[in-house]
Simulated assay, not measured.
Amino acid sequence: MSGWDDKLAIDELLHNWAIRRDAGHWERFQTVWHDDGWMMATWFQGPATEFIRVSREGWDKGVNILHFLGGSSIDIRAHRAIAQTKMTISQRASINGCLCDVVCTGRFYDFLEKRNDRWAIVIRQPIYEKDRIDPVSPADVPELDQGSLQAFPEGYRHLAYMQEQIGYRVKRDMPSLKGKQVEALYQRGDRWLEGLAVTPQEFLSVT
């Protein structure tokens, strides 16, 4: 497979992640991950197999989270790759009786590896750049606790607020557009492409 073919295969994989997850095609969603795959998100950090399980449970309970993808930049070195993909995360839920949409813009930052001629995700870490909250009905105004809202990082402040309102515990040191967390992520990406070890535990300890 040529370098261009590898990029096409990775690009298809990245789109399959969003389509299959948002459509609830859980068995097919499993195929975009390696067996030791790991997912980092505001509301979940752990093995991909567990992420699929809790995502499916949320789907069955009516949790409404959707993804939209933009362009990708893919760097390949031997059997490893780093992909950055522009994306939005859209979540709908009720806040104090007001049905709202939160839209968070950012990037998926993926650590990928080719094993047995198959590309798949080893670690996915979103970068949260900016977000906003809108009432579904323009006649409504959500009541937000400003103290709680301001306690969350700017890049995913409203998303975190909504997610904690519906019962999730949100990680408060995820990478944003700028800062030490995203710089540490880029350094891990460089190490990955150099063939060095990058472990999921590193992503849990960033502060």
Rank of each mutant, 00 (worst) to 15 (best):
M1E: 14
W4N: 05
D6W: 00
L8S: 09
L8I: 03
E12K: 15
E12L: 14
L13H: 11
L14G: 13
W17P: 15
I19T: 15
D22M: 09
A23S: 15
G24P: 11
H25M: 14
E27N: 08
R28Q: 14
F29G: 11
Q30S: 13
Q30P: 04
W33S: 14
W33P: 13
H34E: 13
W38D: 14
M39H: 13
M39C: 14
M40C: 04
M40T: 02
A41C: 07
A41H: 11
T42N: 06
P47S: 15
P47A: 15
E50R: 12
I52K: 06
R53E: 15
R53C: 12
S55L: 07
R56C: 06
E57K: 13
E57M: 12
E57W: 07
G58M: 13
D60Q: 12
G62D: 13
N64Y: 12
L66D: 11
S72W: 04
S73V: 09
I74P: 05
I74G: 10
A78W: 08
T85M: 09
T88P: 09
R92H: 07
G97L: 09
G97S: 07
C100M: 03
V102F: 00
C104Y: 00
C104Q: 09
T105W: 10
T105A: 15
R107I: 03
F108C: 10
Y109F: 13
L112Y: 04
E113M: 14
E113Y: 02
N116E: 14
N116R: 09
D117G: 04
R118E: 10
R118M: 08
R118T: 15
W119S: 12
A120N: 12
I121H: 07
I121M: 11
I123K: 01
R124V: 08
R124G: 13
P126C: 01
P126H: 01
Y128D: 02
Y128E: 02
Y128N: 02
Y128P: 08
D131Q: 04
D131L: 00
I133T: 00
P135I: 02
V136N: 07
P138R: 03
P138Q: 08
P138F: 01
D140T: 00
V141S: 11
P142I: 05
P142Y: 04
P142S: 03
E143C: 10
L144C: 06
Q146V: 01
G147A: 02
S148V: 10
Q150A: 13
E154F: 07
R157Q: 10
H158Q: 09
Y161Q: 04
I166K: 03
R169H: 14
K171E: 06
M174Q: 03
K178F: 03
K178Y: 05
Q181D: 02
A184R: 12
G189E: 00
G189N: 01
R191M: 05
R191I: 00
W192R: 04
E194M: 04
L196G: 07
A197M: 07
V198S: 05
F203D: 12
T207I: 06
T207P: 04
